[in-house]
Design a binder for these strands. Structure first.
Lengths: 332, 332
DNA sequence: TTTATAAATGTAATCGTTTACACTGGTTTC
DNA sequence: GAAACCAGTGTAAACGATTACATTTATAAA
């Protein structure tokens, strides 16, 4: 292994000067720079980042905890994060929680052990107080999810109003008996979307019988199974709102498995607008989130936190969009 | 920040002893261990991993370069890798190349800078010689892809024989005019699957007119566009083999867009068996790769390399499986 | 009791950088 | 011509752990 001293010797300067050259921190004569660069070339020297990190007490790495990497919804957020990260010399350490709270918590050690300078959470299943404590000591940004009454910087859409928008779409099509397949009600995200649904229904004085609301876990399988359950009702709904696309697709598959058609017999609307939403048949009506921008903004905020820059506000709400495709249709 | 010296002072021992306790490297009296643990608890001490890494010249981190994180095919391989990694105290640094060779090469710096102890490549677009050189100096394992005539440890299926198997399936159903949508022919993976296709066709003395072979890039879009192109032929094929599922689904969408049906008018077979393959309609006939096992084995090999254990052989071929679903059907 | 051996602990060097501070020699300012 | 300043460089002390080696203490053997 070739070290900075080797370069220094070869170039006949001190290690300090070499260091100044590789970090281009100014105040080095042009010729000296050339000498040093030549030595670096010849020796094929690469600075040892560990040593630098130890000295500077920073890692230039940030941690992103994803609830489930197989859900393509998150991929695009990641790309947004990465794009800002790389532009600023940060590397992204990706942690996949496999939808498992315990795994999620374990990743926090990475932060404690100073292996990362900050963290973006794309999930909020860890205890709010724990995260609250951590965020006092380390830079933390929440994306998509959020905690009620928390001061942690957050980037998301307005889930309540989006869910209202989706529900209004169905109501506008003449549906009155609408089912809802929710996300886990343990999280705000799941609760908010349910809240939006309920608000929209209430506004039009439409009833929401409890058995028309089923709690899922955002997985394809839960969408499938819960829809089957809903279909066993004497008076099944004419439309269903699933709190994410994966469950919506599961629901449609369940509907089809019973010989019914979407949207002719039942309208279905999803949430997220993941890639298959437009490929699947019928193409899914859904709420599109500005995923890339969410990632972008989250990383920008995190960098500000790391640099201890002041942050003007800590709740960023981005615009979503209703995308009407083939899975929803006027009640006939 | 609380350091090891603080703990040492509090527990009235030397830093060496504290270090021995936290790395439990033996030879410490029970009572002393207790004293130290108590101090650690009280001070809420967390060892600084950077310092440890610098001293030991290892990072306990491995780098995985994925060609495209949005392709769910890789997610399961990652889980295999992670499962072995975590069991052995390694963290996984995920690098997403966005299907971009340049990005891919840039990640190599992570290795040069000693930010990772080794690397698993799930893609092989980087120049073979470059990788060859790197693998002499750093632990490197290739998964899924491989280089011809290279000594780098590799875990994959036998793509040639798998492609032959897929083609034989179509031939067995009576198809004689079969189209092939390949992956990028710049990579062995793309070439091998084409080779298997050609071999199977040749074995049955079936012609492969050049225009029935189209080069895609493994993306949904390329599958869609190339299928449209194939359908403009005067005598279109009765079956199509796409070199991965994403392209197969693109192809099916294209076929449908022309008012044709799968499998009634054309049979389609894919490759990989990603999750949507079974959800999509028609459910896709495809070759299932043992993704989790591939990841597992790759990480096991990498750990051996890192530990400089001897490796008995360096080409691991795992078993794939033909999964017959609804997108392929006897020629009527 | 003495000696040999093993167990437990401490001292200080080390990993490879960065950077505060000191130094040199030259230029500018009054 | 002294004082003040600056550009360019070097010296050596950090950063926070691990660990080779030295030392002390306890235990066993003679």
């Amino acid at each position: 292994m070739v070290r900075i001293v080797d370069v220094a010797k070869k170039a006949n300067v001190s290690t300090a000067t070499v260091s100044r050259v590789i970090t281009n921190s100014g105040n080095v004569k042009k010729e000296t720079i050339e000498k040093v660069m030549e030595a670096i070339q010849k020796l094929n020297y690469q600075p040892n980042i560990l040593a630098r990190q130890l000295r500077r007490l920073e890692t230039k790495t940030i941690l992103v905890i994803v609830p489930d990497i197989t859900n393509t919804f998150f991929s695009n957020i990641l790309r947004g994060i990465e794009s800002v990260a790389n532009k600023n010399g940060y590397q992204v350490l990706l942690a996949d929680a496999h939808n498992n709270v315990e795994r999620e918590s374990n990743f926090l050690d990475i932060l404690y052990q100073k292996k990362a300078d900050g963290m973006i959470l794309l999930t909020a299943r860890i205890d709010q107080n724990v995260i609250g404590e951590i965020s006092k000591e380390y830079p933390v940004v929440l994306a998509c999810e959020y905690f009620e009454g928390s001061q942690i910087p957050t980037v998301s859409i307005d889930n309540i109003s989006s869910a209202r928008k989706a529900t209004d779409h169905l109501i506008g099509l003449g549906h009155k008996r609408i089912g809802f397949i929710s996300g886990p009600l343990g999280g705000v995200l799941g609760r908010d979307r349910l809240k939006g649904f309920q608000q929209a229904m209430a506004q039009q004085n439409l009833a929401v019988p409890p058995f028309l609301v089923q709690e899922g876990d955002f997985s394809y399988e839960s969408g499938y199974n819960l829809m089957l359950k809903i279909l066993t009702l004497d008076l099944p709904p004419t439309a269903v709102f699933a709190a994410n696309d994966e469950m919506a697709i599961g629901a449609i598959k369940a509907i089809k498995s019973k010989g019914l058609r979407v949207p002719e017999d039942l309208s279905v609307i999803g949430f997220d607008d993941i890639k298959i939403a437009s490929i699947f048949e019928p193409a899914l009506t859904t709420i599109a989130q500005p995923t890339f921008e969410i990632g972008l903004k989250a990383m920008e905020l995190l960098i500000k936190l790391i640099n201890k820059d002041s942050i003007t506000k800590n709740q960023y709400m981005l615009e979503d969009k209703l995308v009407i495709r083939d899975s929803s249709k006027e009640l006939s």
